[in-house]
């Protein structure tokens, strides 16, 4: 009921969505790309180790592409952002709670859910897929560069493997998962922040909880989407 009312109060949350998208999404791009780069490199090397002598080497492209688009891109990006974004939100909102800034918002006739929760969750839902898409692109590129430089594969062979089992669903499946991870991570951060009690110790405790809950939610949602959509 309160969530519906908070969502309906667009005059309060709308001005804060873009700044939150920059904070939660744009500022998270470097860490996501760092992880994706090394994931692409390792996947390419790993596939060579697995396929040598048994499977044609152009399957390296298939394994790198499929795995990064559908699983490792969204999940590793989600887990990295659960740490960065979830902790950031929980610590910020938790500090606002224990210093009575959340109470001050209420006395100024703002609904804290409209002012604090809705813009962060919307920013998470919108930006996690964007960051994930970038991570997927960089991961596949890193796999391709590794393949042509270290695995004696040509670009044509890598692309042939990449297109072999490709379906459009691979992309939207990954991005849909990323959006749900964004909702879970930001919601965990906000709710743990608002539930904070007891000063600095409470902020630390609930920040840790927010990260743990965000990571757990990502793994559960990952299994859920695989069961429902594959």
């Amino acid at each position: 009921m309160d969530s519906a009312r908070a969502l309906a109060d667009a005059r309060t949350w709308a001005p804060h969505v873009l700044p939150q998208m920059r904070r939660l999404g744009v500022d998270s791009v470097p860490i996501a790309l760092f992880i994706a780069t090394f994931t692409g490199i390792v996947l390419a090397l790993l596939s060579k180790y697995i396929f040598t002598g048994a499977v044609p080497m152009y399957f390296v492209g298939a394994l790198v592409g499929k795995t990064i688009m559908m699983e490792l891109g969204p999940v590793l990006t989600g887990l990295a952002l659960a740490g960065r974004v979830g902790a950031n939100i929980a610590a910020e909102v938790g500090t606002m709670r224990v210093t009575e800034q959340v109470d001050a918002l209420e006395t100024l006739a703002y609904n804290p859910n409209s002012y604090l929760v809705v813009p962060r969750v919307l920013a998470g839902v919108l930006m996690f897929p964007v960051v994930t898409a970038l991570a997927v692109a960089i991961g596949v590129t890193a796999g391709w560069i590794t393949a042509i430089n270290l695995l004696d594969l040509s670009t044509l062979e890598f692309v042939k493997g990449l297109r072999l089992f490709y379906r459009f669903k691979d992309i939207w499946f990954g991005l849909l998962k990323a959006a749900s991870f964004g909702a879970a991570v930001t919601l965990a951060g906000c709710l743990m922040g608002l539930a904070t009690r007891g000063g600095a110790e409470g902020v630390g405790r609930n920040t840790t909880r927010a990260v743990v809950i965000g990571c757990e939610a990502i793994l559960v949602l990952d299994a859920f989407w695989a069961l429902v959509l594959l």
Partner: peptide, 22 residues
């Protein structure tokens, strides 16, 4: 909720540690 917001509009609250938005 709407009536409570209206009521709060007529009440100023000065918090112990000011509770300014930092």
């Amino acid at each position: 909720p709407d009536a409570l917001s209206l009521l709060r509009a007529g009440i100023g609250y000065v918090f112990q540690f000011a509770a300014l938005f930092d």
